[in-house]
Structure formats: structure tokens, C-alpha cells
């Protein structure tokens, strides 16, 4: 919720006992009929929205297949979980980039930009959308030169080799610092894998089931005294549990 976009006047911003009561009265008068799952608007009072609209919102088709291939290696399918791709990590990243996070609209992004010391943190002038656009183009260039193929067409072992090279800074990319790009993708992939499924990743709460995290539960009074034992709690998402909507 941006303060300015609401276009409030100074008068409306006055909060006194009188206006608070008036707001309360108006709110109760605004009745609404709700059918199905109510639509949430993220970052505006309550609740995240549902990200199940089809298609890519930020990535091109080629970028999307590269990102899907990357997240499938960062989080490979094995007997512990499905892959990062099947968990929805690429969809998560796409939706994050399409939204306000993609432009760092909350962050201080005024120059001059200087590298600074390691103690001064991330000083890059690139916002996430640019980091992905440049990084994926750089990756495509590198893979074409090295393997005459796109990243997504490489064998898994080759993909791991490239990712390791980026991680360690042994591979240089045109247009962006390879380590910065890798850390950006790794961080967002982990966010997608472990965040609430309402953001498009962590499908079916796969990561939560894997580690035994019960999710968006809000009352552990019955459990806090049960020490050193596995509780086997079924995880809950912000949007509930599939068990809630089962018929019959």
C-alpha cells in the first residue's frame, strides 16, 4: 500500500475519536456478498493473492525455460521432494519480478553507486528485473559459446558444472557480475520453495512436508509442552488446506 496512491487529503488523515467512529460506521455499512474464495490483494491490509493465472508475466518463453532448468538443478527431484521446477519456483520468481519486488520500489536506489567494502552490503544499481534479464542473457551467451546450446538443453551434469562456476565466480558473464546473478537466483529459488504456496511456489506445501514445518498455524498452546517428540502436524497454508474443501 503506497501512502501517496490513495490520494488522501490532509483532512482525511486526521484521526481523532470522532473520525475513527465515522470510519467504523462506514465500514459496517459497506456490505459485500462473497462467493467462493475471497480475492486477496497483497500488501494491502490483508492477505496475499492467488498466483494461479496461466502464462508468464515477466519472463519470455526462452528465459522461463532457462529459469525452470536452473531451479530444477538447485533443487533437484529426489526421494525427498519434487524438483524446484515442479514445486513452482520459476512461477514464483516470475510473479515476484512482475510485482513491486521486481523494481525494488521500496528500496533506496539513489546514486552515486559505488562498490564499497564487503561490510557495506549489496550496492548494485541493478534491480531484480535487470539482474534476471542481464543474467539470463549472459548465461545464454556463455552456454552457446561453450556448448553451442542453451542452458536448458545441457545435460544435468553440465548444468551443475555451469551453476558451480557461477556460484564460485569462476565463470564470467557479459553484462552482470556472475556471483551477484547466482546469489539472486538462489535466494529467490529458496524463497519460492519455502514461502507460503499462495505465492506460486512450494506447491502442495512440498517443502514444509519435507522438513516437518506446519506452516501458517497460529496456536501451539496444546503442543508447546510436548518436548522432544515428533508432532506430525499436517501443514496449513494461508489459503487453508485441501482437506477443508473436500466434498462430502
Amino acid at each position: 500500500m503506497t501512502e501517496k496512491s490513495k490520494g488522501l487529503t490532509r483532512r482525511q488523515l486526521l484521526k481523532s475519536s470522532a473520525t475513527t467512529l465515522a470510519v467504523g460506521a462506514a465500514a459496517t455499512a459497506k456490505a459485500a456478498t462473497v462467493v467462493g474464495v475471497p480475492a486477496w490483494v497483497p500488501f494491502d491490509h490483508n492477505g496475499p493473492m492467488h498466483y494461479d493465472t496461466p502464462g508468464w508475466q515477466f519472463f519470455t518463453a526462452a528465459e522461463a525455460s532457462a529459469v525452470e532448468a536452473i531451479v530444477a538443478r538447485l533443487i533437484p527431484a529426489d526421494d525427498l521432494s519434487v524438483s524446484g521446477k515442479d514445486a513452482g519456483c520459476a512461477v514464483f520468481i516470475d510473479r515476484q519480478l512482475a510485482g513491486e519486488y521486481g523494481t525494488f520500489s521500496r528500496l533506496y536506489m539513489q546514486g552515486p553507486f559505488e562498490k564499497g567494502t564487503p561490510m557495506q552490503g549489496d550496492q548494485s544499481e541493478l534491480v531484480p528485473r535487470q539482474r534476471y534479464r542481464l543474467g539470463l542473457a549472459g548465461l545464454e551467451g556463455y552456454c552457446q559459446k561453450q556448448y553451442q546450446k542453451s542452458f536448458s538443453a545441457l545435460a544435468p551434469e553440465e548444468q551443475d558444472k555451469v551453476l558451480t562456476g557461477l556460484d564460485k565466480g569462476e565463470i564470467a558473464l557479459d553484462g552482470i557480475d556472475a556471483k551477484l546473478f547466482f546469489q539472486q537466483v538462489l535466494g529467490n529459488t529458496m524463497e519460492g520453495f519455502f514461502a507460503d504456496p499462495v505465492y506460486g511456489g512450494n506447491r502442495d506445501m512440498v517443502s514444509w512436508k519435507m522438513i516437518g514445518f506446519p506452516g501458517a498455524r497460529y496456536d501451539y498452546r496444546e503442543y508447546i509442552g510436548l518436548h522432544n517428540q515428533k508432532l506430525n502436524l499436517v501443514p496449513l497454508s494461508i489459503s487453508g488446506s485441501s482437506a477443508w474443501t473436500k466434498k462430502g
Binding site: P42, F43, H45, G47, R106, D196, A216, R217, Y218, I238
Partner: peptide
Amino acid sequence: NVASAADELRYNRRQ
């Protein structure tokens, strides 16, 4: 809200 307060991405990561 009790239904949406438990959101790590929004509150912890996105501050």
C-alpha cells in the same frame, strides 16, 4: 489478521 499474519515472505523477507 490471524489468517494472513503468518506470512514469512511478506513480513520477514520483504520487510
